[in-house]
Amino acid sequence: MKLSPAVILTAALAGVVTMGGVAVAVDSRAGETVAQAAAELPPSAVEDFAYPQADADAALKARGIKLKSGDGHIMYAACTAVDDPSRIEVYSHTEPNKPFCFRVTGAAGSLVLELPRVYAVRAGDYKVHVDMTVEKSEVSFDVPKNEWVGVGKTTDPQKRDHALVALTASK
């Protein structure tokens, strides 16, 4: 037997609930206890994969790069003189000869960002997949481990500027 929501609500308000076809009286105060217990619980944590706001704001202010979201395994990082095998270097005409660096942790990672005028990517010990946009089109490039690859304007016959919109790395 299928009950309408109105019948269920009326029965619940009257203190009667049907279980397996048998009507059972319910103490109306039990509902209050459940509601009180639920109100005392901390809110549930729901991961939205947004890039940590303070870090994203600092990167935008310092270098003009918009860090949007990711899985936490590719993080914007300082480019140090030491060769870091977990590092991905991205070159943009916004700051020629001064790379934007990202550090990969774990076996794989992803990052959604916005960096205009990208022309080259260097991968460390990870294969890197690069998603870019040009005008209203999307293009992708694969960068093998420990290699440099020209991307964006470097490969475009029309020499249009491309914006980097996503990095994905895997071992």
Rank of each mutant, 00 (worst) to 15 (best):
D55S: 14
S44F: 06
A54R: 10
A62K: 12
P43M: 08
Q36A: 13
L60H: 12
D48K: 06
A77P: 04
K66T: 03
E47V: 02
A45W: 02
A50N: 05
D55C: 09
M75L: 14
A58K: 15
A35I: 03
L41G: 02
V26P: 01
A77F: 06
Q53M: 07
D48I: 04
P42M: 08
E32G: 12
I74W: 02
V34A: 13
E32S: 12
G70D: 09
L60N: 13
Y76F: 14
A35E: 07
R29Q: 11
Y51Q: 05
D27Q: 11
M75S: 12
S44C: 05
K61M: 07
A54K: 07
T33K: 10
V46A: 04
E47M: 01
A78G: 13
P52R: 12
K61E: 09
A77S: 15
A35W: 03
G31A: 08
S28K: 12
Q36T: 08
A62P: 02
R63P: 00
P42W: 04
D55M: 11
S28L: 15
Y76W: 14
A30C: 10
L67G: 00
A58W: 14
P42S: 12
T80M: 12
C79I: 11
G31R: 08
A78L: 14
D27A: 11
D57L: 15
A62R: 11
A30E: 13
F49L: 06
V26Q: 01
A38I: 13
C79M: 08
G64F: 00
G31C: 07
Q36V: 06
A45E: 06
G64D: 05
G72T: 03
D48A: 06
L41K: 07
V34P: 00
V46W: 01
E40C: 02
Q36C: 04
A58V: 10
S44A: 12
P52I: 12
G31W: 07
T33F: 06
Q36L: 07
G72E: 00
V46G: 01
A54E: 12
P42N: 09
A37M: 10
L67T: 01
G31Y: 08
S28T: 14
L60S: 11
T33A: 15
D71I: 06
H73I: 01
D48W: 03
R29N: 08
L60V: 06
R63Y: 05
R29V: 05
A77D: 15
